[in-house]
């Protein structure tokens, strides 16, 4: 395999940092544009896969806690932009990114699609729980809260968390596999360049 950076001075669009930025930002954009669509066949009980969560998990699996947290913050802000800033999605995605990075999957678990699906399943449940907790706190702490009563919130949470977790874990490999292949490839060529 030829390394992406050749000894000469290639134009900037052939350099690896540019390609990597393009792939990373492009995949985020793709996930964002998939969010409002309800494509027939990939929704369950009116709930679509949580594409941003899958992206955060794919990003954080082989990265540090800080990198996971920053990815969660950025994608959370983007999702806030597309919905509404309260309850904020930054918190749930940061938690998902940090926990995934803490798992240190490459040390303890074998790399396969099933374990990724399992991580995404768990993180989807956790992310929806963080949102439900925010709503619950708002309900408990402020008098004029517009949110429904706690039993209703948690009943709704059950439905959303379960469908979101099932769908996201099923669709996780579709995003994880190509992205991770790319990042692995880049890491390998990066090390080759250093030595």
């Amino acid at each position: 395999m030829t390394p992406l950076i050749s000894p000469g001075k290639p134009p900037f669009y052939q350099q690896s940092w540019f390609l990597n930025t393009l792939v990373t930002a492009g995949s985020v954009l793709l996930c964002l544009l998939l969010l409002p669509g309800r494509i027939p066949g990939i929704e369950l009980l009116g709930v679509a896969p949580h594409w941003l969560l899958i992206w955060v998990v794919a990003w954080s699996v082989k990265r540090t806690v800080w990198e996971g947290a920053i990815a969660g913050l950025v994608l959370g802000l983007l999702q806030d932009a597309m919905t509404a800033p309260q309850p904020t999605h930054t918190l749930s995605l940061i938690v998902a990114g940090v926990l995934t990075a803490r798992l240190q999957k490459h040390r303890y678990l074998q790399e396969d699609i099933v374990s990724i699906a399992l991580i995404v399943f768990a993180m989807a449940v956790i992310a929806e729980t963080v949102l439900a907790l925010q709503i619950s706190f708002d309900q408990l702490l402020s008098d004029g809260s517009l949110y429904p009563s706690l039993p209703q919130v948690w009943l709704y949470h059950q439905r959303v968390a379960l469908s979101s977790a099932i769908l996201s874990s099923l669709w996780a490999p579709a995003l994880y596999y190509p992205l991770n292949r790319w990042w692995d490839h880049r890491r390998a060529s990066g090390y080759a360049q250093d030595s």
Binding site: L32, L35, P36, G37, R38, V47, A48, H50, Q79, M82, T83, A84, P87, H89, E128, L131, I135, V160, S164
Partner: peptide
């Protein structure tokens, strides 16, 4: 109608 809410908690239409 070209889209729905971008998360599972809001009820939006685009």
């Amino acid at each position: 109608v070209i889209g729905h809410a971008a998360d599972h908690w809001w009820q939006h239409l685009i």
